[in-house]
Amino acid sequence: MTPQDIADKVQKQFGDAVLEFDAEALDPVIKVNPEAWFDICEFLKTDADLEFDNLVCLSGFDYGAGKELGIIIHLYSFPKRHSIAVKADLPRENPRIRSIESLWRTADWHEREVFDLYGVVFDGHPDLRRILCPDDWEGYPLRKDYEVQEFYHGIRVPYKEDWEEFDTFLKNPRRGHFVFQFERTLPANGNAKPKEKPSP
């Protein structure tokens, strides 16, 4: 089936829950209401004409600081050889959505990853823990307004050495964004010496 047919079929079944369909996009994507997320996914998987048995990818994204979060899945069907993407927008404060782990087992880890990096809570997920960051990490790193914590168990997190101030490089407007990760300050042409030992 073409993406348009798939979208029509979903639209017929769920009516208002389908917010929009973008057939012009590189990967045609159906935007749905997060309330109906699980039902639409279940329909896509179990319907005899659609049979999306392969969840290729599940990713979260962020529209920008202060705006909404999003979640998108790319589906493929081995028997029918067609594909579609489905996405939903979630509020930034307390984003919740129903887990689709019971439909595709692979969503288990993908959802844990989105929870870890974006803080989206998947209701009904059996084991929602952080997966890539440590369990007691603070904040959700991939959000646009994320600020890295200063210390983690007494280890300084941002890479910074207590060396003498030298900031022309850091003032470079294009480089400003990188400071949080790669800040290192050196005196001009002198031999760099640590002023004092960084605290552990």
């Binding site: 996009a25 590189l26 990967d27 290729v56 990818c57 790319h74």
Partner: peptide, 20 residues
């Protein structure tokens, strides 16, 4: 606002990149 998902066959399986 454009987004693309592309997957290709790496030795260990499909490597997919979703880019916005």
């Amino acid at each position: 606002g454009k987004e693309a998902y592309f997957r290709s066959e790496a030795p260990r399986g499909e490597i997919g990149f979703y880019i916005r």
